[in-house]
Design a protein around this nucleic acid. Structure first.
Lengths: 343, 343
DNA sequence: AACTTTTATGAAAACGTTTTCATGTTTGCT
DNA sequence: AGCAAACATGAAAACGTTTTCATAAAAGTT
C-alpha cells in the first residue's frame, strides 16, 4: 500500500516506515546480513513482497560499487555456438539478479579493446570474453584484473595465464577425433583447412590433427595445410588450390562449419562425389551442417554446457568476497564427433 | 593527474578542483547546458579528457532517474533477422552512450511478461520489443507506457495502437509478392504454410497472399492453407497432408525460411523435382536458403535498415524532453523478393 | 554478581551526480 | 543613467542505498 502513486516505486524507507524499523535494518535483512533476528528478517521479506519492492540498483551500486551487471564480449552473436552460450548465460544471470551487456567485437582486435574499455568504464562487476582470433596481446584486460574484477574467458582464450578463469573446449581432442575418424573411414590423403595460429583453437586442433596423422603413420603434406581466416571465400580458394594439383586429397578436415559447407559446395560443383571421392569433417555442429545435402560430419561443442559452466564460475566469483577460490583454471569442456553423410 | 590511484576513477570533483570551479558548473558543461560560458565549457571538456573522466552512470542515474540503458526483448537472438537487427541497435546505442540489455522471450508469452517486468524494475530508459507470436494482450507494456518510458515495437508488433512506436515490415506486400511471383513463374495450385494468425506478421502475409490469388483469379483451396507454429516438424506434417492427397500443389509459399527448408527437404525425399514439379518461396532471406540446393527464393527484410530505423527513433525519443514528437507511428520498412533456384 | 562477548538495532555519513534556488555579473533597452 | 532581462556560477539538497560507528540488550564466562 504505502506509496502507490503512479510511477513511484517504493523504497527501503517505505518498508522501514511500515515496520517501524530503521532503513539500515531493512537493508541488512534484504541482503542476508548475519546480525539480524530471524523474525525481523521474515517480516521485512514479507513486507517487501507485499509492497512489490525492487531494489534500486543505481542507488545500491553507487554506494557499494557494484553494478549488478556483467559484460560479455563475443566475436558475433549470430554465430550459432555463441548464440547458444549467450542464451544460457543470460538466463542464468537473470536468476541471480544480474544484467548482461552483450557486445560484439566482430573479430576486430581494435573493437575488442574499445569494448573492454567501455565495459571497464561502465564498471561491470565481471567480464566474460571470447576473444578475437587475432588477439595475442591481452593487456587491455589488465585494468579489469588489477581492479579485482573477475574475468572469464571461454572458447577463444588467452594462451598464457593471466589472472583470469579460462573455460575452453577440448580442441586438441577435437582435432584428433576428426582426423582419426577420417582415417578410420578410409582416407589416406587428408587436408586440413585451419584458422590462424594466433588462436588457441587452431593451435590445438592442428596439434590434435597432426597427432592422429602421426599415430596412424600417415604423411602430412605441407601444401595441404592451410592457416587462414575461416571464411567461405578462403575455403573455396583453398579448395581450388587443392584440386588443381595432380595429387588430390580424399579427406578434408575444416576447423569450422562455414568452411566445411564451402568445401562441400566446391566439391559438388567440381563433380566430386561426397563421401565417395572426398570425405569432409567440419567443426561446431552448426545447424546448417544437418540440412545441407549430404549432411556434414562435425564436432559438437555442447554450447549449453559451456554456458552453464560460465555461469557457475561467474556466480562463484561474484559472490565471493576475499581471494579464496576453489576454481582451478583451465577448465576443459568435452566435445563429441557427430557422424553424418559426408563421411 | 589529480587522482590516479589504482582502481580510482576520477570524478566531477577532480575536474572542479583542477579548474577552481564548482561541481555544478562541471556537470552543466558536460551535459551541454545552455547557461555556461563557451570558454568554461571548453576548459571543462579539455580537463575531462585529460583526466580520463568517465561519468558514473549510477550516480547520474540515481539523481536524474535515467539508467542510460535500453531494454530489448526478442524471441531468440539466434534468429538471423534478429541477430542482425540487434547488432545494429547495439552499435548505434553505444555511440550515444547507452547500454543495451538483450533478453530472449523464447516465444513464450509468460517469459515476455516476466522480462518486461524485470526491465521495468531495472528502470530502463526505453524498451524495444519484438513480440512473441502469441502475444495478443499487451497490458504488460502498459506500466512502461504510463510511466512515460518510450516503447518501440519492431517486426512483431501489436495489432492495435498503444502509445508505442511501431516499426514493421511490409508483410502484406511480402505475401503479395511471393504469391504473384509463384503465379508468374507458372504455378496455379498454390499452398500457403503460414504462422498463427495471432501475429500481425501472418495476418498481413496471408492477406497479401490472398490478394494476389484473387487478383490473378486463382481459386484458394482451404485445405492448402495452414496456420501453425512455423517449425520444421510442423512444415513436414503439412507437406505430408498436402502430398498424400490426390490433388497436389505446384507451388508453396511458406512464411519463414525454416519451413521452406523443411518443405524442400520433404520434396526432395518424396522424389519431387524442385522447381520443375514444385516451386517454393520462403521468407526472411536466412543465409541457409542460399546454401541449400536448390537455393530458395525468399523475401529479404533488410534487417540492417530496420535496426537503423529503431536506433533513429530511439535516440529521438530518448533525447526529447517534452511530449512533442514528429514520429508518425506505424513505420513500414520495404522488403524485396530474391529469386533463386527454387522457382 | 560482575565482567566480557555476542547479537540486534539505529543514527548518520557516504557514494557521485543533477538540480533548485540564490546571487552576482553582464547585456540590452529606453 | 537606470532598470529589466539574460547569462554565468555556486551552495546545498536530493536521489536510495550501504556501511561505519555507536549503543542497547541478551547471552556467556568466571
Amino acid at each position: 500500500m504505502a506509496n502507490e502513486k503512479k510511477g513511484q516505486q517504493n523504497t527501503i524507507l517505505d518498508i522501514a516506515e511500515a515496520l517501524k524499523l530503521s532503513p539500515a535494518t531493512i537493508s541488512r535483512a534484504l541482503n542476508g546480513h548475519p546480525h539480524v533476528k530471524e523474525q525481523t528478517k521474515n517480516d521485512v521479506l514479507e513486507m517487501a513482497a507485499k509492497l512489490g519492492y525492487r531494489r534500486n540498483n543505481m542507488a545500491s551500486g553507487l554506494r557499494s560499487n557494484k553494478t549488478h551487471t556483467v559484460g560479455l564480449i563475443v566475436p558475433r552473436i549470430s554465430m550459432f555456438f555463441h548464440a547458444e552460450v549467450i542464451t544460457v548465460i543470460q538466463n542464468g544471470l537473470h536468476k541471480h539478479g544480474y544484467n548482461l551487456i552483450i557486445c560484439q567485437s566482430n573479430d576486430s582486435v581494435l573493437m575488442e579493446k574499445e569494448l573492454t574499455e567501455i565495459l571497464y568504464a561502465s564498471r561491470v562487476d565481471a567480464l566474460v570474453a571470447s576473444c578475437t582470433l587475432f588477439t595475442t596481446d591481452f593487456v587491455h584486460f589488465d585494468r579489469l584484473l588489477e581492479n579485482g574484477t573477475p574475468v572469464i574467458f571461454y572458447d577463444r582464450v588467452p594462451l598464457k595465464d593471466l589472472g583470469a578463469v579460462v573455460i575452453k573446449g577440448d580442441d586438441f581432442r577435437g582435432g584428433y577425433m576428426a582426423a582419426s575418424h577420417l582415417i578410420e573411414v578410409g582416407c589416406r590423403k587428408i587436408a586440413h583447412i585451419s584458422g590462424p595460429l594466433t588462436s588457441n583453437l587452431y593451435q590445438n586442433r592442428s596439434a590434435g590433427f597432426l597427432k592422429a596423422m602421426e599415430q596412424y603413420g600417415l604423411p602430412v603434406n605441407e601444401n595441404w595445410i592451410f592457416h587462414q581466416e575461416l571464411t567461405p571465400v578462403n575455403a573455396r580458394i583453398a579448395m581450388e588450390k587443392l584440386f588443381q594439383s595432380d595429387e588430390v586429397p580424399d579427406g578434408i578436415f575444416t576447423d569450422n562449419d562455414s568452411s566445411a559447407i564451402a568445401a562441400l559446395e566446391y566439391a559438388k560443383e567440381a563433380g566430386l562425389n561426397v563421401p565417395a571421392d572426398l570425405k569432409i569433417v567440419g567443426y561446431s555442429n552448426d545447424p546448417r551442417t544437418s540440412i545441407i545435402s549430404p549432411s556434414i560430419t562435425t564436432i559438437e561443442q555442447f554450447p549449453t554446457e559451456v554456458g552453464k559452466k560460465v555461469v557457475e564460475v561467474l556466480i562463484e566469483l561474484l559472490k565471493k568476497t576475499g581471494a579464496s577460490t576453489t576454481i582451478v583454471s583451465p577448465i576443459t569442456m568435452p566435445i563429441e564427433l557427430i557422424r553424418r553423410m559426408s563421411t
